[in-house]
């Protein structure tokens, strides 16, 4: 089966074709090439972001220096959502076009997304203590982030419980898509619930009063998080390819030739 698929994908017809890279065999070296640029970009952007965040951005008038947590908190929260959407997107592509690689991408993204959700929760709590006086409030955003974390856990637990990779892929894809449909509903229900139970409604949006250097630092850190996420997902997808296709010729050749270290 893999033979017919790969030979169909191997013919790079006129011009650049996305589907050329839709098979693990052709994507593996491409992912390897993309890896170092991602790591370098992540490292440089992190350094630049931290420099701006700690040395250029001024101390906040109301929050003092505790606000410097947002340079990781906000990018992490953004990434956790973007990664879930990307995961659901790859799952949908996989179910529609029946491509193995899409499922592998989704599987590779999940742990990194879960890590971002965890980081967002952790830093949110540590930011909340000095700002709100408590580590945890049932704020709409924090609650939704927690639920997002559970959704990641569910996806990974389901995949881990199924031995057959084909079934694991598809079952995981289904729950990821159902979850993605649910995320906006969850967010609005929590927000609505929050307005009913007044008290926790502390505004997190410091954006209008934020100095441009603060915003710049945050955006640079967000770009670093993007680069890191792509790099981590590419490494993981390469590992998954080797694990799943380890009895195929291309993986065996690749490994015994010792090509492209990762």
């Amino acid at each position: 089966m893999s033979e017919t698929q790969s030979s169909a994908a191997r013919a790079p017809s006129s011009g650049f074709s996305l589907f050329y890279y839709a098979s693990p065999q052709t994507f593996f070296p491409l992912a390897g090439k993309l890896l170092w640029p991602c790591w370098i970009a992540a490292a440089l952007l992190t350094l630049a972001g931290l420099y701006i965040g700690f040395f250029v951005a001024p101390t906040d008038a109301t929050q003092g220096d505790s606000y410097r947590i947002i340079f990781i908190h906000v990018p992490a929260a953004w990434m956790s959502m973007v990664v879930y959407l990307a995961m659901a997107f790859w799952c949908a592509v996989g179910l529609v076009f029946n491509t193995r690689l899409s499922f592998m991408m989704a599987t590779a993204l999940a742990p990194t997304g879960a890590i971002w959700a965890f980081v967002a929760l952790w830093t949110g709590a540590l930011w909340g203590k000095p700002t709100w006086g408590t580590y945890w409030v049932w704020d709409a955003r924090l609650t939704s982030e927690l639920i997002l974390f559970f959704l990641y856990c569910g996806y990974m637990a389901l995949q881990a419980a199924i031995d057959d990779p084909r079934r694991a892929d598809r079952a995981g894809a289904l729950i990821a898509i159902v979850g993605a449909v649910n995320v906006p509903i969850i967010y609005f229900s929590v927000k609505w619930w929050n307005t009913l139970h007044q008290g926790a409604s502390v505004s997190l949006t410091a954006a209008p009063t934020m100095a441009t250097t603060m915003l710049t630092g945050m955006l640079v850190m967000a770009l670093a998080a993007w680069a890191y996420t792509i790099g981590a997902a590419l490494v993981r997808v390469r590992a998954i390819m080797i694990e799943r296709e380890r009895s195929t010729d291309w993986v065996r050749k690749l490994v015994s030739n010792g090509d492209s270290k990762a």
């Binding site: 559970f150 569910g154 637990a157 389901l158 729950i175 159902v178 969850i186 929590v190």
Partner: peptide, 8 residues
């Protein structure tokens, strides 16, 4: 784990 988040 799968269903409880959807129940929220």
């Amino acid at each position: 784990l799968l269903v409880l988040p959807l129940y929220i």
